[in-house]
Design a protein around this nucleic acid. Structure first.
Lengths: 352, 352
DNA sequence: CTGAAAGCGCTTACAG
DNA sequence: CTGAAAGCGCTTACAG
């Protein structure tokens, strides 16, 4: 069933069928009804690829997840819980706006070509890049991408070195402020010896979270004990080992702010394995509001990015730019992060 | 840049360019090289939509997640951890085979039309349906779908009522056998009073998991205490409340097999909240091998479906069928489920 | 208000 | 082995 068939059945031309489908104004109600009746009767759907070829948008958004150190045969997205949180929000928002969502994972070096490919094949109106590292944009041949690209978690300065920034918008979480919420929360609960578990330094978010920690501690006139800063690399196994070292060295902080939930969960497990009580002995604040943190016991106090807000904006920007190349879109937007207080922070009782 | 431009630059016709791109055999090496050189120089990619319109496959697979009782503003996929596990595996396998993956969530009644729409618009070569309930296929207007549809977790009997089964293949986990692994594992550890927390009865998997439990208990000459069977509805909150009731009634089993991990996690939390030790007092086996179960403490012993195996088969079937309508594909394939022994099952010490 | 015609960028018989 | 031509199923100036 194609538009020509509908035209014949309705006694009009293909042009008119097309006008009805695209809801053009210059079609009298009578004609519109006549055509719609046939369309509905046969449940006709215009071929999406023909429409796009003839000049319509593909109404598809690409989402690309960059996964470093991927493990063959492992579930990559699941392993990065906040990736699925973004995906989830993007699918939800995009579907609501009538967009289809194309998902790709980039695990190997040669996978980077996929981003470019999806654009150049004209499959998508725009793309969203998640999991970006400092060197990612170079690998992607960003200058060949003509359409809109929205990048989550990327440094604006790095971007400005590139020629074509006008097609790119960065969406960041305000990680520094977020961490200050955590620091202040801990201080309110009487914590002074606050530690930090760091993420992968090649990501902007890891750097900003740590910077935010240092700044906020300073602002609150607390000193950072370098033995209380652990390199968790966003990885549960690494975080476990680092916490074990801290235990061995008897260098445990009152509490730890962690650059993601997984490291918090692993560190808590480690402390428990060696006889400590969480949160009584040591308190924890995570980052990302993962389901695992929500289900564990004690429920993890965590920082929660605005997944839906960022997803919505990303889709909106792509929509805007694909319909009007000259639309004015900011280079970077920063989103606030909320502190979600649950049960993993305990009051510190001052020992006199 | 289009094929005509490449043709001109290479001094050949568009036909030849097309032959090179599609790797046809009747092109001399010399010509092929000449054309490839230009293609690479300009990093030319054929317009996917034009290719498809001209007769090629869309090389896109649709994945549809049916989400019941969805909550506005909640992360739907994340909330169902095993959904993302399937998605993950599908994206991975599909990408490897050169397929794009289109993701849609079906939350509201009117969303069911999306499945049909994606097919009728010719956006996808085939689709995968996840989260199917008994009445799902009726809502989807399955008879209008001409292309291949793979359904996860669906009853073959229900299917045979439908006119067009030839386009459908069902991929199931062998839940009954899976549960028998769990029962036997518990028996080996000395458990006799084994309980069960049930899922949503309108899903095949929930029914089969419970049936499997009853059968396996019988086979092992153990009686099922109906007070030890809880209706968790696959939901953490419901499971928590049901476990609370059991505690109030002092009707707690030695151990519980749960139709999913989340209910196990919630039940464990409940028992702890009321002073019980898990696994010392009560043991647990979950289902789905979620990340939350892996990260919790004690690490959850669970049944793990073959996510990759099923994903791979689904993609392969769609590939096969979209290239040869008459390809013979089974109506249903059943996949084995593995028991993943971790730390949530303790030996029961016989009290003399 | 509406139809005939051109065009979107490919692929594929067809003919040589 | 290769090119000219038709066709995939739409949309959109264009002309009336």
């Amino acid at each position: 069933m194609k538009s020509e068939d509908i035209a014949k059945l309705a006694g009009v031309s293909r042009s008119t069928v097309s006008r009805v489908i695209n809801d053009y104004s210059n079609v009298p109600d009578e004609t519109r009804r006549k055509v719609m009746k046939v369309i509905e009767e046969y449940d006709y759907r215009p071929n999406a690829f023909a429409r796009t070829l003839a000049g319509k948008k593909s109404e598809t958004i690409g989402v690309f997840f960059i996964i470093e150190n991927s493990i063959e045969g492992e579930l990559q997205l699941t392993y990065n819980d906040f990736y699925t949180a973004y995906l989830d929000a993007i699918v939800d928002v995009a579907n609501q706006k009538g967009y289809y969502v194309l998902v790709q994972t980039i695990c190997k070096e040669e996978d980077y070509a996929k981003v470019n490919k999806a654009f150049r094949e004209k499959r998508i109106d725009g793309g969203i890049l998640i999991g970006t590292r400092e060197d990612t944009l170079a690998k992607i041949e960003i200058d060949k991408i003509q359409d809109k690209l929205v990048i989550f978690d990327y440094e604006l300065n790095t971007l400005s070195y590139l020629a074509s920034t006008k097609n790119i918008t960065i969406l960041n979480s305000n990680d520094e402020v977020a961490i200050s919420f955590a620091v202040e929360h801990l201080i309110e609960r009487g914590h002074k010896h606050i530690g930090f578990i760091k993420g992968v330094e090649s990501t902007l978010s890891a750097r900003r979270r740590y910077d935010g920690f240092l700044k906020s501690m300073k602002l609150n006139l607390l000193t950072v004990n370098e033995n209380h800063v652990l390199n968790g690399e966003f990885d549960q196994n690494v975080a476990y080992k680092e916490m074990k070292k801290a235990i061995d060295n008897k260098m445990i902080a009152d509490s730890y702010i962690c650059a993601n939930d997984y490291m918090a969960i692993a560190a808590i497990e480690c402390l428990r394995d060696y006889g400590y009580n969480v949160p009584k002995d040591v308190s924890f604040v995570g980052f990302d509001n993962t389901r695992s943190g929500q289900l564990m016991s004690p429920k993890l106090t965590t920082l929660t990015p605005d997944f839906f807000g960022m997803a919505k904006k990303a889709v909106e920007i792509i929509h805007l730019k694909s319909n009007d190349e000259n639309a004015n879109v900011p280079d970077m937007i920063e989103y606030k992060v909320d502190l979600l207080i649950r049960d993993s922070v305990e009051n510190v009782i001052e020992v006199q």
